[in-house]
């Protein structure tokens, strides 16, 4: 059983500080208004195995706790 991780962004919390975009450019870009845009275009994205530790860092770096990393079982 492998572990899948999902990153979730709370848009009501996010203040466009942009730390997540700096730490995880593989998953995030900034939109024209300065807000993080996940590569899925939605509020959830799967995190590849090799990016899990970077994702944890992004979660910790967000000053308003708008990011959450969730473990999914598959």
């Amino acid at each position: 059983m492998s572990q899948l991780h999902e990153l979730r962004l709370d848009p009501t919390g996010c203040d466009a500080h942009g730390f997540c975009v700096e730490i995880l450019p593989e998953l995030f870009t900034l939109d024209e208004w300065g807000y993080p845009l996940l590569n899925t275009g939605t509020l959830v994205a799967a995190v590849p195995k090799d990016l899990v530790s970077a994702a944890k860092k992004a979660v910790a770096a967000c000053p308003v706790a708008a990011l959450r990393l969730e473990k999914l079982k598959s």
Binding site: P11, T12, C14, A16, D31, E32, W33, G34, Y35
Partner: peptide, 12 residues
């Protein structure tokens, strides 16, 4: 006005 894409995107 809570979420950026709504607050700034809709006026755009």
């Amino acid at each position: 006005g809570q979420c950026g894409p709504c607050r700034f995107g809709l006026p755009s």
